[in-house]
């Protein structure tokens, strides 16, 4: 049984915009899955349909085997949603928000209070439990939405850009928290624009563009498709290189060199060539996140095929 099984999902909005064009997707139980795509690709529409916030036009959705058309309440009970936009009552306290949410799922108040202490504590919000939501910082609001989504202890947690606008320190602590949840057996589906986040956390990935799934594979397999990586070498100021035998390279400024390295070549050869020219390398890094390069490549390939 899959945690999520989507088949032939279509959505045409009342204005005629076709957001999803027969979208299929399967997410294994216990997976940490990245659903990526450019803005307007259909990610939020898909999540909206899975969580009953958007009415589908065609197709089927099963959550842990429960069809949303036949067993909607059982399907909903399995899912916790962390939406992209803040959607809690700004005038309620943190504790009221999470305890009420638990109540909507039938969790008795005494149990809800215990869970509130647990999840708000784990997300460093317990001290703010009596503060009104509008008094929280942006990062705290994001964590509040995660705590709220966990109050009924769902089997499937869907996070729609949970770290948008969050500073790197907090982002990393959220990654750690999500990894722990996944290790406890919770299936996680994540959408994000920080591709480093997807690469670091997720085992499997789906890339959606213009309402269609253009890639659905494991992160490992996807990354192995990357044939060329660009590396940046920091050199002493005033360095100059015209060419590097066997490699495409360019000087960005008088102390920065970019070199395209094919998977078959290896970095040793680059260092040997630099050594031959008496160039000292001060430091080195990837130009861009590997997944980011692949993502751009896949999306533009798809669009080129279309045109």
């Amino acid at each position: 049984m899959y945690a999520l099984e989507i088949s032939g999902l279509q959505k045409t909005y009342s204005g005629g915009v076709e957001a999803l064009k027969g979208f299929d997707l399967k997410v294994e139980k216990g997976d940490f899955f990245a659903l990526l795509g450019p803005n307007g690709a259909g990610k939020s529409t898909s999540i909206g349909i899975i969580t009953s916030l958007v009415n589908k036009t065609e197709g089927s959705v099963h959550i842990f085997g429960h069809d949303i058309d036949q067993e909607l309440e059982l399907a909903k009970a399995q899912v916790g949603l962390v939406p992209q936009e803040f959607n809690f009552n700004q005038f309620e306290t943190v504790l009221q928000i999470v305890v009420n949410q638990a109540g909507y799922y039938g969790v008795p108040r005494s149990v809800a209070l215990q869970r509130a202490e647990k999840y708000l504590g784990q997300l460093d919000l317990w001290e703010k439990s009596n503060s009104r939501a509008r008094e929280l910082s942006g990062g705290m609001k994001r964590r509040l939405m995660i705590a709220r989504a966990l109050m009924h202890e769902p089997q499937l947690l869907i996070l729609d850009e949970p770290t948008a606008g969050v500073d790197i320190e907090l982002r990393r602590s959220m990654w750690q928290f999500l990894t722990q949840l996944n290790q406890q057996g919770i299936t996680i589906i994540l959408t994000t624009h920080y591709l480093e986040e997807a690469e670091m956390l997720c085992r499997n990935i789906g890339i959606i563009d213009k309402g269609e799934l253009i890639e659905h594979t494991s992160m490992k397999q996807l990354l192995s498709k990357l044939n060329i990586e660009t590396f940046i070498f920091d050199l002493p100021a005033g360095s100059h290189i015209d060419s590097l035998a066997g490699f495409t390279c360019r000087m960005v400024d008088d102390h920065t060199l970019e070199v395209d390295v094919a998977k078959s070549q290896g970095l040793n050869a680059v260092f040997q060539e630099l050594d031959k020219q008496g160039i000292t390398v001060l430091s080195m890094r990837n130009k861009a996140n590997r997944l980011e390069e692949l993502f751009v490549e896949l999306v533009s390939e798809g669009r080129n095929r279309e045109s």
């Binding site: 969580t51 009953s52 916030l53 909607l72 309440e73 059982l74 909903k76 009970a77 899912v79 949603l81 939406p83 936009e85 803040f86 959607n87 809690f88 009552n89 700004q90 009420n100 949410q101 909507y104 799922y105 039938g106 709220r148 009924h152």
Partner: peptide, 18 residues
């Protein structure tokens, strides 16, 4: 209407509440 405006009506719409 305030629940609609602040979008916290979604808290109820995603939950298994008839």
């Amino acid at each position: 209407f305030s629940c609609k405006f602040q979008r916290n009506i979604e808290e109820l719409l995603v939950a298994p509440v008839p």
